[in-house]
Design a protein around this nucleic acid. Structure first.
Lengths: 333, 333
DNA sequence: CTGAAAGCGCTAACAC
DNA sequence: GTGTTAGCGCTTTCAG
């Protein structure tokens, strides 16, 4: 079985305390002892037991990351950022997939508490994540990811989703579109709601009315279903804006299957600018978000909170989205 | 800070042993005490400290999952399967991304040892994963994922990659193609090597020669680069088979950018059948693998190994790949 | 600079 | 049925 610190100590003819010092404060150990113990550690293949260490310390060097959909490339990019930044600081991260379900989210939070994570990065599935408050009492740092907070008790890293919605519609309006459909998910998802607000803002300014098509889950199949609904609208739109690229890709498929040409007959714009947007049947115009940086920033923020403790000042970081024009949009016919 | 079992005991006026019994062997506690203690647990918001529990037990209920590329939808599907199956059995899983690098792989293995995972599911980046042997000595179960093993000391769950390579080329040959390019990654990646073997098998049988184009990393950018090489071949192929869909999507983009029509001028076939294959510019013909089931099967296998111990019989599960025909392939001109 | 010993939160014998 | 207690592997005073 695995080698314990005690065995190392015995073999190196020193006490357990000294071995511990070699591990944690090498500067306090004499060069000779240091070398001998380090050699023994290597020979025996000793790896310290994080449980014991953290049990003693009262806290761990692990983080939890809860995202609504790991299958969404946007979130895998975020996750990469988190992991890279965390591992640079010596933290391990549990990646959890809530599938946009509050129940699963709570389940995972519980698992993470049991695992004694030091902090949780989360993209909550609903607007008012009350269950997150309890974490702070437990001494677990929480930072919101891809989601703003007004609360002064936590950090957040987000992208300006309202602005993102505005950019998309502004662009379509500039092209000359006045009949636009907005395909979005449940209002309870903050990103969706915010992007919707952006949509409405610009619609008012340009005095156009926008049809809202709501899907229950943000996936491609639902996007495909949305097409039926769009096509049965009393007045056919000339452009469609989707709440994310996955849904947009589904809509694209639905449109193409029915022989509707993009962008000649219908402009289409997505959100997230995932890598696959480029490879789509019609390369997809999209609103880009700095996913990787989002992950990095949030990990650094939460680690700083974990380590600085009281000295840490909560901050809300907000990135700006960017329009990426490809082949799926043009002037209306 | 967090509530300990001792505090629960004090509040409920019982001993710590009894609280522990409530948690782990409720049947041994009297109904009255049980109820009182459970209520106290709830009131106090007590969540057992997994560290302490596992330190005592000597093992944890966590698994590690190391994949070469989380950004690849194939592996996120696998991960979903693993996570669903694991969480059903009360296990938490650490998802790690090796980026096809042996070095990162070793680093993560070390992290997982520290975290005292009970078992590791891994898609190793090279053919001869000697560093995995050491894990068994530590009492950590290892099962290979998407990768076969001859070793009788571990389980494996894989897909018949040789057959997958054969299926692809057989199909192209049946269509009438005799000049085929095989775009693959480093020979050191077992899946690549096996699919290559399948390619060669059928090439010999059909007495055709196949040009191998090797890319260094299995991503879309590399796929796009491969196109230059393909187009400078002395004899232009009529079909291209790529080692995975991501690479194929890159190749598709490269081809399309140069005005080469698919499938009229060039047939293209990928591997994995990721969801985005359907949404591609030209819906991509691909070799499908049961990714989710792969994940589920491997998680169940490793958990069974963890729990049965000696009684566990190592097994090698092998799934069969399937051809999925879409619009990117047809007879040669 | 090194050793001895207490104790982190919990489980599992073993007493009662 | 319930209480008591040793000890999992480690860190950290505190002595020496």
């Amino acid at each position: 079985m695995s080698v314990s610190l005690r065995e190392v100590a015995a073999r190196a003819q020193v006490s357990v305390g000294t071995v511990s010092n070699v591990l944690n404060r090498p500067e306090v150990v004499s060069a000779l002892t240091l070398e001998r113990v380090q050699k023994t550690i290597k020979d025996l293949g000793f790896v310290p037991n994080a449980f014991a260490r953290h049990l003693r310390a009262g806290f761990s060097r692990t983080l939890g990351l809860i995202v609504p959909d790991v299958a969404n490339p946007f979130f895998t990019e975020v996750a990469r950022g988190v992991e890279d930044a965390a591992s640079k600081r010596g933290y391990a991260v549990f990646l959890c997939n809530s599938d946009e379900s509050v129940k699963k989210e709570e389940k995972y939070i519980n698992v993470l508490i049991q695992q004694q994570v030091r902090g949780i990065l989360i993209t909550p599935s609903n607007r008012d994540p009350a269950h997150l408050e309890a974490l702070l009492d437990r001494g677990i740092a929480v930072t919101l990811l891809d989601r703003e907070t007004k609360s002064r008790t936590q950090c957040s890293v987000s992208v300006d989703d309202i602005r993102g919605g505005e950019i998309a519609i502004e662009y379509l309006v500039t092209l000359g579109h006045r009949d636009i459909a907005w395909v979005c998910g449940p209002e309870s998802i903050p990103q969706v709601a915010d992007r919707g607000t952006g949509v409405t803002n610009v619609a008012k300014l340009a005095s156009i009315s926008i049809k809202t098509i709501r899907v229950t889950l943000m996936n491609a199949v639902q996007g495909e279903h949305a097409v039926t609904e769009i096509l049965s609208l009393p007045k056919l739109p000339t452009a469609i804006f989707c709440a994310n690229d996955i849904v947009a890709l589904g809509v694209m498929r639905g449109l193409l299957d029915r022989g509707i040409r993009i962008p000649e007959q219908m402009s289409l714009i997505g959100y997230d600018d995932i890598a696959f947007a480029t490879s789509a049947a019609i390369p997809l115009t999209s609103i880009a978000q700095p996913a990787y940086q989002l992950g990095v920033a949030s990990a650094e923020l939460i680690i700083s909170e974990c380590e600085k403790g009281e000295a840490h000042a909560h901050q809300q970081i907000k990135f700006q989205p960017k329009l990426v024009i490809r082949a799926s949009t043009q002037k209306p016919a």
